[in-house]
Design a protein around this nucleic acid. Structure first.
Lengths: 107, 107
DNA sequence: TATACAAATAACAATATGGTTATATGGTTT
DNA sequence: AAACCATATAACCATATTGTTATTTGTATA
């Protein structure tokens, strides 16, 4: 996965409210109207948070009548964990640096 | 680790430039003046990025003469990987929701 | 001591983020 | 059809983020 893509998914994760939503979805699927009374923020705020998680493919949605239930996408979380321990290799950049004689060699 | 703390570390990670810096530090320790020619941004911008990584304890710094060398803190990265797969438990919140009769039971 | 280089900090600007309230949309029920 | 409820979107505001240039601080050296 590219650096920009990894950063985008991490940005979607990097918020306490969204992390809490994911933790709740680990217990069971929830709809927005269940999440609202748990947090001290408005319904549109919750709606935007889950929307951000959906864009990052960290959750899936399923409409059931008038409700929309969100479920966690554990695969995506595993992917991001893997991406962090296997970031794209930039050794070519360091090689170019050496060719340009810009390397700092200390003592 | 608390949600706010995890979110803070994820915010430090959630930027392509900082992810690239970490990838470079996986190859070898680098100083700011080596990182500058690799990226298309100014020296103060790089300095602020490594400072952000340092605050999140994702890197360590060692002064060597006039240079400051940065090294990756792999332990911290492992910690955040672990934290993502073991987020704090919020089942108590769902229990309270049920007690208040706010649970949505569908079909 | 004066000069030079590396790195950090200050002050600022443009954009992104995370909240609000008001309103629109989608589906259910009377 | 009308009313109702859940969710999404629009418009807006305050603050955070990420870059810039100018300046300061720390260390080495002529």
């Amino acid at each position: 996965m590219e650096f920009e893509k990894i950063a985008d998914i991490l940005k979607a994760l990097a918020d306490p409210t969204r992390l809490k939503i994911l933790s709740l979805l680990r217990i069971r699927d929830c709809c927005v109207c269940e999440l609202v009374p748990i947090f001290n923020i408005s319904q549109p705020a919750i709606s935007k948070h889950v929307s951000r998680l959906k864009t990052a493919e960290l959750v899936h949605e399923t409409r059931k009548g008038q409700w929309v239930f969100y479920s966690i996408n554990e695969k995506r979380l595993e992917e991001i964990g893997y991406a962090l321990s296997h970031l794209p290799d930039l050794s070519e950049e360091l090689r170019k640096l050496e060719q340009q004689g810009l390397t700092v060699t200390c003592e």
